[in-house]
Amino acid sequence: MFEIAVCDDNALDRKSLIERIEKNMPEPESMRIHEYDSGKSLLNSIKGIRFSIIFLDIQMGELSGEETAIRIREMDNNVILVFNTGFVEPSPRSFEVQPYRYIMKNMAADVMDRYIKDALKRMIEFSQAPLMKASVNREMLFLKADDIVYIEKYKKSTRVYISENAIKIYGIKADHNGQLPDIRIQEKLESIYEKLMVYGFGYPHDSFLINFKYLIYCTGKALKLKDVDCMFPITRSKAVEFNKLKQEFMLSKYKEGEL
Rank of each mutant, 00 (worst) to 15 (best):
A145N: 04
V160I: 14
Q186K: 07
I172P: 13
Y214L: 06
K144W: 04
Y170A: 03
I183R: 01
I185K: 00
K155L: 06
I192P: 00
A174K: 15
Q179K: 15
I185G: 00
Y170L: 07
V149H: 05
V198N: 09
E190G: 05
L215N: 10
E152Y: 00
I169N: 09
F208G: 03
Y154S: 13
L209K: 01
I216T: 15
A166G: 14
S207K: 13
Q186D: 06
D206T: 12
I151V: 15
Y154W: 15
N165Y: 10
Y217S: 12
V149Q: 09
I148K: 01
I167C: 06
D206P: 04
K188N: 08
D175S: 12
G202K: 11
I169T: 12
S207A: 12
I148R: 03
L196M: 14
I172Q: 11
A174T: 13
P181D: 04
V198Y: 11
G171H: 10
A145M: 06
F208L: 09
L143D: 02
V198L: 10
I172N: 10
Y154G: 01
I192Q: 00
I162W: 10
F201K: 02
I148W: 02
S163V: 05
I216W: 05
Y170S: 02
E187T: 00
K144L: 11
K156T: 11
E187Q: 13
E187R: 03
E187K: 07
K195R: 15
E164T: 09
K213H: 14
Y161P: 01
I169P: 00
L196P: 08
V160G: 02
Y193L: 01
H205W: 08
E187V: 00
L215T: 12
R159H: 02
K155A: 04
V160F: 01
Y203E: 04
K188Q: 01
D175R: 11
K195Y: 11
N211C: 02
N177D: 13
L215R: 09
I192M: 00
L189D: 00
Y199E: 03
Q186P: 01
S207V: 00
T158S: 11
F212Y: 15
L189P: 01
K188T: 02
K195P: 02
S207P: 01
A166Y: 09
A145T: 14
L189K: 02
E194H: 10
K195V: 03
R184F: 04
I167A: 02
K155F: 03
D146Q: 14
Y199Q: 03
L196R: 04
R159P: 01
M197D: 04
E194K: 14
K173N: 14
S191R: 08
K156H: 12
